[in-house]
C-alpha cells in the first residue's frame, strides 16, 4: 500500500519547520513527537475530548483529526506559545492558577487553546456562553466550575487592561 512521504513547511508558534512526514501521520503526533512540543496532549484520537486542541490559522481545531501533511503552509499555535516557562502568564493561565482551574492538568493545554481564542472573540462572556464554548473539552477532574470561574476572571482582567 502506498505510504509516501511529503515535505511540509509549517509555522508553529512563530517558528518555521520544514519536515518530511508520512501521509498518515496525525498532526497531534507530529507536534508532540516530531517537533517535541509535548504540551499538546492526546486523550481520544476521535475528536471528542479536546485535549489535542491547537489553533490552526487562529482557530481552535482538533489536531488528532488532521494529518500533518494538511498543515503544509499553515500556521499553528500550541500551549507553548502562551508563555515561556520564565515569562509572565497569559491572563487566562494566570486566572487558571488563581482560580484552581486545573488538577491533573492533562486537559489544560487544550482548554487554554480553546478558551484564549474564545476570549479574543468574546471579551464579555456570560457564564452560559463560557460553558458552551468549553463543552468541546472534557475534563475529568475539576467538574468545570473553577475553569469557568477562571475564564470569567480572565475576561474581567483583560477588559480592565484594555
Amino acid at each position: 500500500m502506498s505510504n509516501e512521504r511529503h515535505t511540509i513547511v509549517v509555522t508553529v508558534n512563530g517558528q518555521r519547520y520544514a519536515r518530511e512526514v508520512e501521509s498518515r501521520l496525525l498532526l497531534s503526533d507530529f507536534i508532540r513527537h516530531d517537533l517535541l512540543l509535548a504540551g499538546t496532549h492526546v486523550g481520544c484520537e476521535h475528536g471528542v475530548c479536546g485535549a489535542c486542541t491547537v489553533q490552526l490559522d487562529g482557530l481552535p481545531v482538533r489536531s488528532c483529526l488532521m494529518f500533518a501533511a494538511q498543515a503544509d503552509g499553515h500556521e499553528i499555535r500550541t500551549v507553548e506559545a502562551l508563555a515561556s516557562p520564565q515569562d509572565e502568564f497569559h491572563p487566562l493561565q494566570q486566572a487558571m492558577h488563581d482560580a484552581h482551574g486545573l488538577q491533573c492538568g492533562y486537559c489544560t493545554p487544550g482548554i487554554l487553546m480553546t478558551m484564549t481564542a474564545f476570549l479574543d472573540a468574546h471579551p464579555s462572556p456570560s457564564e452560559p456562553g463560557v460553558r458552551e464554548a468549553l463543552s468541546g473539552n472534557l475534563c475529568r477532574c475539576t467538574g468545570y466550575q473553577h475553569i469557568v470561574d477562571a475564564v470569567l476572571l480572565a475576561a474581567e482582567r483583560m477588559r480592565g487592561a484594555r
Binding site: 500500500m1 511529503h6 501521509s23 498518515r24 484520537e45 476521535h46 503544509d72
Partner: peptide, 11 residues
C-alpha cells in the same frame, strides 16, 4: 488508534 497507510494528494 492510528490510521492505516494511504496516499495523500493535496489537490
Amino acid at each position: 488508534m492510528k490510521p492505516a497507510p494511504f496516499r495523500y494528494i493535496a489537490a
